[in-house]
Design a protein around this nucleic acid. Structure first.
Length: 118
RNA sequence: CAAGUGAGCUGGACAGCCGCGUGGGCAGGCCGAAAGGCCGUCCAUGAGGAAAGUCCGGGCUCCAUAGGGCAAGGAUAACGGGUAACGCCCGCCGAAGGCGACUUCAGGACAAGUGCAACAGAGAGAUACCGCCUGGCCCGGUCUUGAAAACCGGUGAUCAGGUAAGGGUGGAAAGGUGAGGUAAGAGCUCACCCGCCGGCUCGGAAGUGUCCGGUGAUGUAAACUCUAUCCGGAGCAACACCGUGGAGGGGAAUGUGACCGGCCCGGUCUCCCCGGGGAGGUGGCUGGAGCGUAUCGGCAACGAUGCGCCUAGAUAGAUGGCUGUCUUUAACAGAACCCGGCUUACAGGCUCACUUGUGUU
RNA sequence: GGUACCAUAGCCAAGUGGUAAGGCAGAGGUCUGCAAAACCUCCACCCCCGGUUCAAAUCCGGGUGGUACCU
């Protein structure tokens, strides 16, 4: 991915939960905050509540794939964190994709030309 | 054909597009003085039978001991074999279950010692409450004119003794059944059976057989304990190397160095100790008790030899998304230092061997 | 990834094989004109499944859930 690195440090996650803006849908929560860089930093949180390792891996891979395929539509310079909720385990990929874009639009993370309901 | 028993294998496939980790190649592009890094592109390769639980056993690393022994603590437990080792596996014995194929068993010792066995029950390792029997006393009867003696009998709140068959409690009442025997009874005696110990037979051993002899002993060791065997401890977040560690605080000493000061005293900082504070990277890391196959040895587990093969190595953690076809969202489920086991979870499919029943020939 | 520990009533908890103490809360009753207090009574599949034992919350094995520690 060209404009994005993965977010790894626990400090940054905690700061986002405390100070970032958020938006909620049944299957996920999206947090974001300006980071003052030229690139985005993207993080995924999948807790043990959702299931065992195989289930968590599948959810994480889907969320990463969704961001990868939609990366060009995002404005640069943000820290973005997706927290998966329990309903994400049994959701279809297309449904997750729709929810993700709707939340991103709500937080005004997409390019202005794209600011409409997907 | 139906119902079952055991062993083993498999664990979605194929095609297209977009993506990921690792290894290798590239007269490719960018950065850099260089080493090299980043990007691009091509090729190869990329989760399991349980990767899980972390319950055992080993390798490996560090610590301790440096010959080992004892104690403590822990583990295991019929016997023989396999293995690097094991609490695992194979064979076999015994016990229990099943018509059977077969399955299950922490399966040493309570006959070395100690402990525990509530409640119930007369009594729990021995007992004597009721009962049964004998004798005394007492009472009644017979005999007698009457009494005593003798005899007979006791629904007698009695005494002494014998007994352990019966009671009906309990998980368990100290061999069982039958006969003899006796005042009543009792392995007291006998026959058969059951169990234990020893001798002899067979077997490599556990063990088996025995009309050989003795003997009758409660259960519990997943109670302490005894016997035999084994175990030093911790774990890859081990460990090694490179790099990094702000400010403030306390102590010791009056020592080292520097500064303030003309000098002493004194003050500040530093060196020393305690404690606080930090950022990570590289190796360890995958070629091994390895996998496949053939032959030989062995009932088997397994072993020996020959030939062939190299098959993940991440570090917030690589396998995903979409479309189509088959037959359905495939079940349980994701390596994290590596092996050998055990346990637990699991949809569907396949193969082999065997048992019982039914039918046909 | 590794190591250790815990699970008993709604809550806090005691209980070293013999039929589960106590406190708080809750329900019912006595007392009162009505309450409070006091007193009495009730409220447990001892996390689940097997095993040892005559008998298991307790002993043994397996599982489930939770907690803490190690860079």
């Amino acid at each position: 991915m060209k404009y994005t690195v993965f977010l790894k440090e626990n400090r940054v996650f905690r700061r986002l939960y405390a100070k970032g803006k958020s938006a909620v849908s049944p299957a996920m929560v999206l947090y974001c905050r300006k980071n003052g860089r030229k690139e985005n930093r993207y993080g995924i949180t999948v807790s043990t509540k959702l299931g065992k390792a195989v289930i968590r891996n599948r959810v994480r891979r889907r969320l990463r794939e969704i961001y990868r395929l939609n990366e060009d539509r995002f404005l640069p310079g943000y820290d973005i964190v997706v927290v998966a909720r329990v309903k994400a385990v049994h959701s279809q990929y297309a449904d997750l994709n729709k929810q993700f874009l709707r939340l991103a639009n709500k937080l005004q993370l997409l390019h202005p030309l794209e600011e409409k309901e997907p």
